[in-house]
Amino acid sequence: MWIDDTMSFHPLMDYGRAHHQSSRSMADEGPAFEYTAEALATLEDICSRYPAEQRKSAILAAIYLAQRQQGYISRNAMKAVAAAIRCTTADVEDVVSFYTMFYQRPVGRHVLQVCRTLSCALNGAERVTAELQAVLGIAPGQTTADGEFSLFEVECLGACDRAPVVGVNDHWHECQKPEDARALVDGLKAHGAAGLTGCHLHVEKA
């Protein structure tokens, strides 16, 4: 037996108890969902980029379009994606549940994603998260009661030279210092995405 006295795991570790329980949860049915005509036209354009018999290649795009429309992917949205892509709802759920950028429950208007991987962590990302938690009053994974902000810790965003990076919806807010957390939140409240000062938005002005 490979687990013997010399190889025992710590009795206080909760790993074994929690890990082997399935964490699968069904998506909420959500409100009725139908793609807008504009979204369907965009989707058809994207489908034309792939061979006609490979329509499934556009599934990520179809899910993005549904998410842009509804903010998250409900079971009804999955059904609409399946109809548009001509696959099963299970195919859609399979994909939605794999990729981190698809939300299976509603998120805030501003989704703050603090990169927690090594280069950002070496530059204080843990403290950025702690400050944002304090300012927003929520833990990572939660959304504020007014539906304005969600906070997530995410894996390497690929901007390690401008660490720590905070993804804000589809943008980056770079070189974030812990002490600037309140300014970031206030700026978003007051000006939306225009309140961001991430360097990639300003490269042409240099």
Partner: peptide, 11 residues
């Protein structure tokens, strides 16, 4: 000191 004193990782 650049690390957080205590941290909660999201599930």
């Amino acid at each position: 000191d650049w690390r957080a004193a205590s941290r909660t990782l999201a599930a």
